[in-house]
Amino acid sequence: MTAHPRGNRRSSLHTFSRRLLIIRALLREPLDREQLIAVIRRELGDEAYPEQATIALKHDLDALKREYDCVIRHQRETGRYELRDLGKLALLDLPDACLEALAFIDSSFPEGAAVPATIAIRALLQRIEQLLPDERRAALRTPSPVQLQLGAGGDPARIDQATLRALRRAITGRRQLRFAYFSSHDTDTPRTHTVEPYRIFFSDVGHGYLDCTHVGATPSRGELPGQWINYRLDRIVPKSATVLGQMLPPTRRQPPSYTVSYTLSARVARHRNVAHLFPHSQFVWHDDGSASVTATVTDLWQARLTLMRYAGACAVTGPPQLVTMMREAVAEMMAVYGLAGAPAPE
């Protein structure tokens, strides 16, 4: 029989393409025999497999296991093949910087989260990790001396996970919570707070907060029972959070709500693309480019913090409590910058 080196080369290239295609398909999801054959025929044409396609597929799967150390398990109950390990076909090598970025995402979205969005991210990470060679996988698990900074993502590592679990338990079980807490006024010793916890939320700068109704503090610094307070999660002393037996009331005591009104100068409002910072914000655009804004809020402290971003381009006109808070903040800043005696602007 005459040898056909070119034909053989074409044939082995064809076989190799088919096997790579099997891996590609299984990387996406486990598939059964018929589905795999259909994928191959769709991509490479009907002639990709001979009539005895099932036998040929088995040869391909065996070759992938034998020659490339791929781990492919057959799920008896579903009849599907699942790719567990790529073996020598783990070809995705990444520079250290990319590995570090991957490690950052990995730590930002830890396993066990039940949120669908993070489940999808975990699935992506698992796929990428599967594609890495063994030594790069090990490098991914080794803490790097370089700390990746991605801006406003916050630092989830600073929130004590045991505290977070206790908070979740109290919220879900609708029970009071007690914890030691360093407010910005407590420099040396934390104070003990008892609260009715309702939810955890995160701000745009990455800080996590516990939204609570205040019950009591020891010693007190003027907090009022029934007051709604947001506690910074990273200021709760680790291991101090205790879920108490006292149940929360059937409905949350309502806080006062306030109509906030402020004027934005033309400098920030001229193009009418002003951020919507409070619920139900209403804008009135003026001919000179400025804007008047009204909104309803329940948290004046947060409103003050939010509006400070505009600095001198924003003038708060109500409610009086917020105007006072803004004046106090401005006076404090003037003192910081040595302008305590400066005349008030017209």
């Binding site: 979205f109 989260a113 406003a152 993502g153 989830p156 955890i200 800080h207 919507h276």
Partner: peptide
Amino acid sequence: IERLIIVALPDLERADSSDAARAVLWF
């Protein structure tokens, strides 16, 4: 944006970090 928050709220309330909350909003 308010509507987006309302739709995302059940998942936002389970987020354990600002990154996770951003991911919820993104999805």
